[in-house]
Design a protein around this nucleic acid. Structure first.
Length: 837
DNA sequence: AGCACGCCGACT
DNA sequence: GTCGGCGTGCTC
């Protein structure tokens, strides 16, 4: 009944929920320091949850602490390295993100305890007041009792608990030992003769009884009748007259059981039936299930064999190759092609691995990850270690097994996505962030972390170096010391929609639409000509469309009405395939209306620069030429193209995450301006990166890059045409950022204030802005509030407030003002937001 | 995130 | 009177 002796220490434990760490007392009898980075089982809302120990406190939180129940990992080999814990916690604190959110994003594995849990009552404890059938003093599996009951007893200190690690299990069907099969299943009801035969049987009946007595029991009446050579009526009468009786006899195990007994567990009833039948024991899955139901088989759990892992890609040993890369805490490597960059990285990576240290490679998307795996994984073998891949696309058992390989030190080169960032590398020496400017590093839900920011914190906490490696540097990376390769050769052809070539017979036509029509849209005359060449020569082309689908709005020609999403303040997008209007904001979709619901006039057919329309235009231009589409809505099978067959693929930016067709002769950007008409200070940087990535998409060739645009003079495009300097554009961008006070010369955060009631949201946003100003924030530091670009999303009204601070420290100060009181709307912070400013 | 609690309008 | 919508707050 007495609580544990008041301990001064408490543990800060993070659970996989969008809340901050909670305090727990160490488990009963725990004397060692807090097991930082280890997983623990903690009482949570009446049950046990897995949590991660991220720190310790003084236990004076003011409320009575519950004890952590069990430490799942050996403190000598924690689930997450303590340095990683401190790096991530530091980021979470500064970004004012609940720690549970970010850990939920980073740890793809380990939230499930792989233990067997046994309980018993403390000796002498009377638990009868808790339940009719409480735990006894015998060890019993905890599953036999309700969670809430166990927790109530646990809280009183009357429960003893034992946890033993359990290997990963899978369900299986096994033969039950013969002595455990229920007796009813092991006997059969048979007809046997009664001796001596009673008097009064007719002749036929007596004959039947005599046969039964001589030939032994029968299973059925008809079997008896058949055996005795009489009709069914005779044996029924003989039975009723007492000439035979039903008796129980021992039955042999059914052949299906004997088979299972000899072959060991199978995965499913169907597998049992199939394998047994194949071995000459006829069995259907239904029969197998019936046998199990009668107690001949048990469903059990068997240890899972280790899953297959990605194979490393062989690489030559770079031992002795020169290593010209910087030794700074943060450095960069950009330009060239992926293959050349990895070749340059190889000596450094191999040297660190050979020293017994760890290297982590963070890739933003699947295509970059695949190239990194091809370019680096083989190095591990030269350094006496293994390479491990950690991504969300692996199965859960694969991730768990990989995590274990890293934790035990067997694999020290880790290549992966965000799931790899917290990998428990013991002596981390280097984190390589690939394509550090990629928006794909931004988590769109949960913590909304920008993973390179976290990588920076984790590297610093480990005293490891951070390398930023990619096609073209982010403006933020320019100030770091680095190595630069010349950009790959690019053949760029620009179609300038704003300044068509002189055509005197045209007259004073100036409208954009006429110019578009004149030069050809979406396929300009130049693009059409090159596409025809591609067809004639049997080669391959890729066209980049600004959007998926038909991607246009539906508009009423009479009243100008455009159908809107019912949940969001955006017009619905027209998708010809599937005949639907879809909201690209929330996914709401409805059939296409024939008539305007405002004035009743017929609606216009929509046309827009989506993949669907461009594909149609290409088919019109090149009849019979294979056309493939690749976007989120439709992903055609590109196998013929990848085999080298002629054709054209039309896609969104998703194209870049696929392998390029091997005989690619042309890449067309149908309307480059899409990447520039975005209200985001990173738009032109993003545009430049897209062009550079397109230029190096094919690993060896330089296909023609045909860009259709109204802004032919844009510097991001011009450097592609005449520049051989990888850094020229990013450096100019960086200077522009300095002038405008944008990153890296400022730290940004977006605060989203949202409520179902628009006025409430607006008032709360204003309230918050006032509070920030009242607490000393300057007009320069607080921008807004303003309604979100989409005024209503999924039925709520978001307002945005931007913070622009000169340093992380100052940003932290500003964000801490949010904690000073509660606001009357939902507040969400997004540090280092991408897009929308 | 769930889940309980509590506050208001629509009904047997 | 209660049923049930949802807004608010808590989880150690």
């Amino acid at each position: 009944m007495t609580p544990a002796a008041p301990s001064l220490e408490s543990w800060l434990v993070v659970v996989n929920l969008p809340i901050g760490p909670c305090d727990f007392a160490p488990p009963h009898g725990w004397a060692a320091p807090a097991p930082l980075g280890c997983r623990v089982l903690v009482p949570w809302r009446g049950a046990l949850e897995v949590g991660l120990v991220v720190g310790s406190g003084d236990g004076r939180g003011g409320h009575r602490l519950r004890e952590a129940v069990h430490v799942l990992d050996d403190p000598a080999s924690p689930w997450v390295t303590p340095a990683t814990v401190s790096g991530v916690q530091g980021w979470a604190a500064d970004a004012r993100i609940p720690a549970g959110l970010i850990w939920g994003d980073l740890l793809g594995v380990g939230w499930q305890a792989e233990v067997t849990h046994m309980v018993r009552a403390v000796e002498g404890a009377d638990l009868s007041m808790f339940a009719r059938r409480p735990p006894t003093e015998r060890w019993t599996d905890a599953g036999a009792f309700p969670d809430a009951l166990l927790d109530a007893i646990r809280e009183q200190g009357l429960l003893e608990e034992r946890f033993t690690p359990r290997p990963r299990m899978r369900g299986a069907v096994a033969a039950r030992p013969l002595d455990e099969v229920p007796p009813a299943s092991r006997t059969a009801t048979v007809l046997s003769a009664v001796t001596p035969a009673p008097a009064g049987l007719t002749a036929k009946q007596a004959q039947a009884a005599a046969w039964l007595a001589g030939h032994g029991p029968c299973d059925t009446l008809s079997a008896w009748a058949k055996g005795a050579g009489v009709s069914n009526g005779v044996v029924t009468a003989a039975l009723n007259a007492g000439g035979a009786q039903y008796t129980l006899v021992d039955a042999p195990p059914p052949p299906a059981w004997t088979w299972l007994h000899g072959h060991g567990p199978v995965d499913t009833y169907a597998a049992w039936a199939n394998s047994a039948s194949a071995d000459g024991v006829p069995l259907t899955p239904t029969q197998a299930g019936t046998l199990a139901l009668r107690g001949w088989a048990d469903t059990i759990e068997v240890p899972q064999p280790p899953p297959a892992l990605p194979e490393p890609h062989p690489q030559p040993d770079p031992a002795g190759a020169p290593d010209p890369l910087p030794e700074a805490p943060v450095w960069r490597l950009h330009g060239g092609r992926a293959r050349a960059r990895f070749a340059l990285l190889a000596p450094r990576v191999t040297r660190l691995l050979t020293q017994g240290r760890g290297v982590l490679v963070l890739a933003p998307d699947h295509a970059t990850l695949r190239r990194a795996w091809e370019g680096l994984s083989g190095l591990a073998a030269h350094a006496g270690t293994r390479a491990a891949q950690l991504t969300g696309t692996l199965s859960e058992p694969q991730r768990a097994h990989t995590w274990q390989l890293i934790r035990t030190g067997e694999a020290r080169l880790v290549i992966g996505s965000g799931h790899a960032l917290a990998a428990p590398l013991d002596d981390l020496a280097l984190i390589i962030v690939l394509e550090e400017a990629s928006d794909a590093h931004k988590l769109l839900s949960g913590s909304r972390a920008f993973l390179p920011d976290l990588a920076t914190r984790i590297a610093a906490a480990h005293d490891a170096a951070l390398a930023l490696v990619g096609t073209t540097p982010a403006a933020e990376s320019v100030p770091h010391p680095g190595a630069v390769l010349p950009p790959p050769r690019a053949r760029v052809h620009v179609v300038d929609y704003a300044n068509p070539p002189e055509q005197p017979e045209l007259g004073p036509l100036s409208s954009v639409h006429l110019r578009l029509g004149d030069q050809g849209y979406p396929l300009s005359h130049d693009l059409a000509r090159v596409l025809r060449q591609v067809q004639e020569r049997g080669r391959q082309a890729a066209l980049l469309a600004p959007r998926r689908g038909y991607s246009a709005l539906l508009r009423c020609p009479s009243c100008d009405h455009t159908p809107q999403c019912r949940n969001c303040d955006v017009p619905l997008r027209f998708h010809r395939e599937g005949r639907q209007l879809t909201c690209h904001q929330c996914g709401y979709h409805q059939p296409i209306p024939e008539r305007c619901d405002q004035c009743g006039d017929p609606m216009w057919q929509a046309r827009g620069p989506g993949t669907e329309w461009i594909a149609q235009e290409v088919q019109k231009l090149l009849p019979g030429f294979p056309v493939y589409r690749l976007d989120r809505d439709r992903q055609d099978d590109l196998t013929p193209l990848m085999r080298g067959e002629s054709g054209v693929v039309i896609g969104t930016q998703l194209l870049l995450s696929h392998e390029p067709p091997p005989d690619l002769a042309l890449i067309g950007v149908t309307l480059a301006d899409t990447w520039l008409n975005v209200s985001d200070f990173r738009a032109s940087e993003r545009y430049h990166r897209l062009l550079r990535q397109l230029a190096e998409w094919h690993p060896t060739r330089a296909p023609m890059l045909l860009v259709q645009t109204f802004q032919a003079d844009h510097p991001a495009l011009k450097v592609m045409v005449d520049g051989r300097d990888t850094l020229a554009y990013p450096a100019a961008e960086e200077r522009a950022r300095a002038a405008l006070n944008y990153p890296p010369h400022a730290r940004l955060a977006q605060i989203e204030i949202s409520a179902r009631d628009q006025h409430k949201a607006q008032a709360a946003a204003q309230d918050l802005a006032d509070a920030l100003h009242g607490a000393g924030a300057t007009a320069h530091e607080v921008l807004g509030p303003a309604p979100s670009p989409v005024a209503r999303v999924r039925g709520v009204y978001p307002y945005h407030l931007f913070l622009r601070a000169r340093s992380d420290t100052r940003l932290g100060e500003l964000l801490r003002i949010l904690d000073t009181r509660t606001w009357k709307a939902k507040i969400r912070v997004d540090v280092n937001p991408r897009g929308g400013l």
